[in-house]
Nucleic acid binder design. Sequence first.
RNA 1: GGCUAGGUGGCAGAGUGGUUAUGCAACGGCCUGCAAAGCCGGGGACGUCGGUUCGAUUCCGAUCCUAGCCUCCA
Length: 469
Amino acid sequence: MSLSLYNTLTRRKEAFLPADPKRVSVYVCGPTVYSRPHIGNARPAVIFDVLVRFLRTGYSVVYARNITDIDDKINAAAEEAGVPIAEIAAENVSAYHDDMHALGVLPPDIEPYATEHVSEMIAMIAGLIESGHAYAKDAHVLFRVGSYPDYGQLSRRDRGQLLDGARVEVAAYKEDPGDFVLWKPSTPELPGWDSPWGRGRPGWHIECSVMAEQHLGRTIDIHGGGNDLIFPHHENERAQSTCAHGGEIFARYWIHNGFVNVHSEKMSKSLGNVVLIHELLEQGSGEAIRLALLGAHYRQPLDWSDAVLRDSQRKLDRLYTSLRDVSDRDDGTQATPSAEFIEALEDDLNTPKALAVLFDLARKVNRAGDSERGLSLARQLRASGEILGLLGADPAEWFTAGDEAALGADEVEALLVQRTAARDNGNYSEADRIRTELKDSGVAIEDGPKGTSWRRIDQMEGEDQTRGR
RNA sequence: GGCUAGGUGGCAGAGUGGUUAUGCAACGGCCUGCAAAGCCGGGGACGUCGGUUCGAUUCCGAUCCUAGCCUCCA
């Protein structure tokens, strides 16, 4: 595998060479569990799922994705709902797992919780104080940014500039306005842990530093997340970990995905445009959502709309059509992805290009008809799709599964028998009447050389191309 | 104000110093009882202004526009 990845630290594509090919370590910042996951949470989960699936074709991989379950927003959500903090967290963890499963995201090897690593965080903070990289003041512990000369390198900011645009007032307990919190005091009603600096709770950044170290070691190969995390989160993680480890490299490759926008605007609660996964799942399949997320290169912004989802649904229809037409002859023989497909992913995970290869394969399968070559191409298509976490469904079921309420599969089959009889008798008006009746119930039919097949028409059919504006 | 991405055909979205992206939509043809699906084919694009070059959508400069970050954020 000759994978190249764009490293945020160096701002260029680099050949990916793991420190230890037998154990590639990947750490991705997971969700803060204060609300249900939205499409923006799904993007890094899907992207890094694909990266890990692809890495596993050449390496042994250990993949950790944390759960941040200590956070002021969780506390706020709990207060608003009038339920215990732990309950809010547990609910949202469960929702996250459900939604990620629906999107075909495989569970990470390790899923550490912040709440289970507090004592290690206290230890790391104490060490940082001891080595002069942090200081305690007024029940807070702060990281001394001036003690780490490389601070700002990841996000390409110098400390002087940072202050110019600072939006917050500088707290009195900070030596330097850029210093950030490692530990802060808790009030009695808030979650807190005893520490040398009093009862309190960890700052956000220290969580990831500690969990990465605990589960993957001092130096990890790949550290990922959304590009909004570059500053301050990853900048601070890097500072903490490097200083805590006596200068050892923290992450060798920093990979960041672009944002999902809605109508060219950032999703936010204040704009009221947050697109939740479980709502999307009522409009389209999880696989279609996944495909939509892979349709743009991971570093590019992705503009979400209903049209994007419907497009993806149709793309899958096309791919599954070609698989369906050979599936009765496929015995499930293992196949390998096409070389072109691999090349696309090797080039900084170019999923749009990889998808184009999938469509090329689908056309070739359709063209090849019943030949042996068609079957082997179809297997190649399926094997390629598997790396993207796509095309894993049974092709026949893909088209017939769905809302049984309107019309059950048995009823459809019965009507098709009637229609075939009518056609055989040359009674085309009756045949067309049945076809119309089926269509009104959301079932489209296709007469082919092997008989008549049917599929449920997706629910978004007929809607306008674009929404709003 | 500082920093970072972008601006590609009707839409989404790759890529490239000269040669087909791909999907959807639309159009013509084949197939079909008619459709659908599929196959074949053609049309249609690189924000603006300059520069480099035999040749630029691609490199360089300027400019306009959009989005994101600047201590809550995936």
